[in-house]
Amino acid sequence: MANQHVDGLDKLVTFLAKRDGIDKLVKTFQYVGKLMHLYAQHRHPDVADRFKKLELASGIARKAFRSGRFLTGFNCLRKTTYPDWKVCGLAILANAGEMIYFFFDHITFFSRVGFLNPALAPRSCFYSAFGEGFGYIFAMMADSIFISRGLSEERRVRDKIRQLEREDPGNPSSTEMHKARARISQLRMDRVMRLCSIAACAADLIIAINDVEPNPFVSHPLTLGVSGLVSAWAGWYRLWPGV
């Protein structure tokens, strides 16, 4: 029993058991709905209306799923150890933005469902989006620093591998060689995950700008739909079990 094979369904169940996993699934529904509404609104208005309802309902549902999420950023700051002051400073700013984002997102949710005064929704949505965009900028900066440092470390590890090959060409499977190659694999995976994080943050930043300072480009349904799916699918990849 201990060696049972874990298949795709097992991974999907594990993925959907996480709050973030459900969020990415419903986010996919939301932005597929937006894109399909754009596609069908002039061809099949009745179908377009259904997709618009899917988009709106998914957006409200995601806000409900995120209840209490503003505490995550605070807890992250409280528990995480950072390698230096630069990363620590960026993490503080990124998590502060996230806390503002989720706190006002809760107010937006209660306003839009009618529990609070609906007039609060536009202002709370603005503050939420501002905090979101603010946090994502610093999160991307922190990820960029880690990617740069990872590339530098990978070059050093490659130099070490070449040195080991010169010193002991007849033993390519030595313990040191295995450790060095494993470290390179680890650095590459970390880089992929951070690139996914940057892609998701950049896509969500576009969506946040639409709420803070709308313009014809960021406010176009195609821009928002594609950005939402990029963010959702980057999150799928990062959260998928076994990746």
Rank of each mutant, 00 (worst) to 15 (best):
L239F: 03
R50A: 11
P45G: 00
Q186V: 11
G225E: 00
V230P: 08
D105C: 02
M177N: 08
N171I: 03
P122L: 03
L9Y: 09
A232N: 05
L164D: 08
S173P: 00
V87R: 13
I161V: 13
L116I: 09
R183N: 12
T28H: 04
A200F: 03
I161G: 05
P214N: 01
F110V: 08
R43W: 09
G131I: 02
T108K: 04
M141D: 12
I161N: 07
D20Y: 03
A232K: 01
Q163N: 12
I206A: 09
T108M: 01
R156T: 11
S185I: 12
L9G: 00
I206H: 06
D105R: 03
F74S: 12
H220L: 06
G73H: 04
D143V: 02
N95V: 04
H106W: 09
E154C: 09
C76H: 14
L93S: 12
K11R: 13
A94V: 02
T14W: 05
G33V: 07
G114D: 10
R123M: 15
R123S: 14
F102P: 00
R158C: 11
S67D: 05
S124Q: 06
F104Y: 11
F104R: 05
L12I: 05
S128I: 03
A119E: 14
D46H: 02
G68I: 05
D23F: 07
W236R: 06
A17W: 11
R238E: 13
R191Q: 13
D159C: 03
F134D: 01
V157N: 11
D105G: 04
G242Y: 01
S111N: 01
L77C: 06
T72P: 01
H220S: 12
S58Y: 07
S174W: 04
A2M: 10
